[in-house]
Design a protein around this nucleic acid. Structure first.
Lengths: 215, 215
DNA sequence: GCAACCTTTGACCGGATGGTAAATATTTTT
DNA sequence: AAAAATATTTACCATCCGGTCAAAGGTTGC
């Protein structure tokens, strides 16, 4: 009779025990580590269990299956990832808004590189698990593109396609997380500390601000 | 007596038969398709064999193992990928050189997205199979960074860290190949044709040229 | 302290996967 | 056309992997 098998409930929204909360967090942290390094198919439940210091069946006690863990991570990540874009304020100063958007994105890349890589892995493979999330993303981007377009028309910015500005900001900032291995290899000794992020910030400010400000 | 088992020789540099050349090409093409979509671990020999229209053992007759195929592709790709960078001419006009470097990289992203994704997959996962290639890469980048630095000093360009310019160009151009799924999702209908590459080219010209030209 | 519930584990399963062996078919050479 | 060499296939194997099960071990509330 006893409901000896309600593992998935643990990950649901119903009341969870102290142990459930702790272990779920532990598993998600371990999974982020593993998934971000090896991609979905490249990661195994055994790896995740080992990293978390748990047994495989124990991991599956908290999450229905491998996919559920991955989805859970993706959901959590996309939200944080879009936060800086949400913050763009139509009433702010265009240059200042774009500048701080870039800075925030770069900080995310510096402080949450694993999240960036997990996301990148997913998109690279055609984003099979992100179809719905992309709808929300498109809506948000469309809104902000409208704002930027208005800014252009009032003459504070040059005329350009705002979609590609957003792509360029995503690309340049996330590059430092996603292609970290390459960046470090190219910079050599100079790439050791976190200084490259400050150098990047300086360069990107120069590039985007001078590149977009109307004369 | 007969050397009934020299499969790996087929992939070597020794004289190859007509069939060997054809089939190796067929396998590499199929592998590019599969690896670029699913990453190394996400790809199976069966998938590759199916895509190539061969049996799995037949594929392994031409290549030692899965890893050998992958390595072969990586080697070939990196070379083509660096070609535009190699072409940067110290005696050319700085703005024109950078402009055509960007254009060439963007053309590669448009015409060879699978190659870009395969490479991106590898770097994302820490570039385990690219350690040596990165040495060559660093050398080339260092050389071109010197050239750009000289250009800056002669006053034709602003002062900035050339490493980050190169990262920014890589990031923005390859973005259209690597994050294609996202780009298309965001652009919606507008992202259907190849027009996004022309829009991107226009935007990147504006961004980089106006951003870097000294006043 | 004990009953009810929650957590953890070891043993196991079926299918996928990388790879091999040996026999057979095909092509090339003589 | 036969011999020699190359190419392809069928059957197979060992390992890995996602996932299950049932039993044992802990916690918690009364």
């Amino acid at each position: 009779m006893a409901n000896s098998k309600i593992p998935s409930r643990a990950a649901g929204t119903l009341k969870r025990t102290r142990i459930q909360m702790e272990k779920e967090e532990l598993i998600l942290e371990a999974s982020l580590e593993v998934f971000s390094r090896h991609g979905y198919r490249g990661s195994t439940l055994d790896q995740i269990a080992d990293t978390a210091g748990l047994s495989k069946p124990n991991v599956l006690y908290y999450f229905r299956n491998k996919d559920a863990i991955h989805r859970h991570l993706l959901d959590r990540i996309l939200d944080n990832w879009l936060e800086p874009l949400r913050r763009i304020d139509p009433d702010g100063d265009p240059i200042a808004e774009i500048k701080s958007y870039i800075r925030r994105k770069l900080e995310l890349a510096r402080d949450y590189p694993r999240e960036s890589r997990l996301f990148a892995n997913e998109v690279l493979q055609g984003a099979p698990r992100l179809k719905e999330e992309f709808d929300e993303l498109k809506q948000l981007v469309d809104e902000k593109v409208g704002i930027i377009r208005n800014w252009s028309q009032t003459g504070k910015l040059k005329k350009f396609d705002p979609y590609h500005l957003i792509f360029a900001i995503w690309a340049t900032t996330q590059h430092y997380a996603d292609f970290d291995a390459q960046v470090r290899a190219v910079l050599g000794q100079a790439g050791k500390g976190e200084g490259r992020f400050e150098d990047a910030a300086r360069f990107l400010d120069l590039l985007f601000i001078d590149g977009l400000k109307s004369d």
